[in-house]
Amino acid sequence: MNIGDRGLRLLSGLALFVVLAAILAIFGLVVVEGAGALSWRMLVEAPSSDLATGGVMPAIYGTAACTLLMTVAGVPVGVATAVYLAEYAPRRSRFATAVRAAVRILAGVPSIVFGLFGLGFFVLFVGKSIDGLFYRDAASPVFGRPALLWSSLTLAVLTLPVVIVTTEEAIRRVPRELREASYALGATQLTTIGRVVLPHARAGILTGVVLAVSRGAGEVAPILFTGVANYLPRIPTDVRDGFMHLGYHVYVLATQAPDVDRARAMVFGTVLVLLVLTFVLDAAALLLRARAHRGTRS
């Protein structure tokens, strides 16, 4: 082989090898030690007060509740926006261009800034306003404090771009002939979207939702000031309560646990739970995406 060709192959192959080896080594180590640390108890019990023993049940619950609320609040908005962009907005309309620009900018906002926004807008503005209107006599803030609700809404805004971009792409992949067939049968635009376009784009839309859920489940910075709690052994029953969260729990255990060494098993177990959660979601998204693409090609 030519020396230049050999150089290219060697250099780029080495880079890929380093990347893959690093990924495998690191995640292999985490998974092995995590699997050793993880136990049934960890999944179903609440943590001890020094966090070093017990389980992470409240954090699992909090993560799930927060992500669920986020999905309920964000996905409909995202899908509706995507439907508007793909089906209604004229190709070159100013409004659509502005919406797309906003989505792109939103996607680039650092997650900690979402935290500031959630605190400044949801907690201190919306929450405090509600308190001022309805809970004037309450001794302590009811809505105007960090809470599950505000964290979820902050994350809903953060994941909005993922949902919009993926859904719009999925809708645009729906073959024109399908729409035309529907119109030719006298269906209105709304009916066509509801009965033909959205069902056909289902896998693609679901990809976006799953990606958003995965992203939302793993983000910590946006919830730091908007609702997450250090230690809250009971399961929150009200969206106005604070909550524990797997990602935040990892942060606390790894950096602030009173006895880091004693908490080592806990932190590995928690990391593994979080890692498995996001891996499963992302892998599902990849599979769904592959299916969505295959569906339109055939």
């Binding site: 990347v19 893959l20 990924i23 995640f27 985490v30 990606l211 995965s214 992203r215 489940a217 793993g218 983000e219 910590v220 910075a221 990602g247 935040y248 990892v250 942060y251 790894a254 932190v267 990391v271 979080l274 890692l275 996001t278 891996f279 979601l281 992302d282 892998a283 990849l286």
Partner: peptide, 16 residues
């Protein structure tokens, strides 16, 4: 896809 999966790893896990 393997490398793409890593893009989805929560940053707190990478910090850990």
């Amino acid at each position: 896809p393997i490398i793409e999966l890593v893009a989805g790893v929560p940053s707190v896990v990478l910090g850990f």
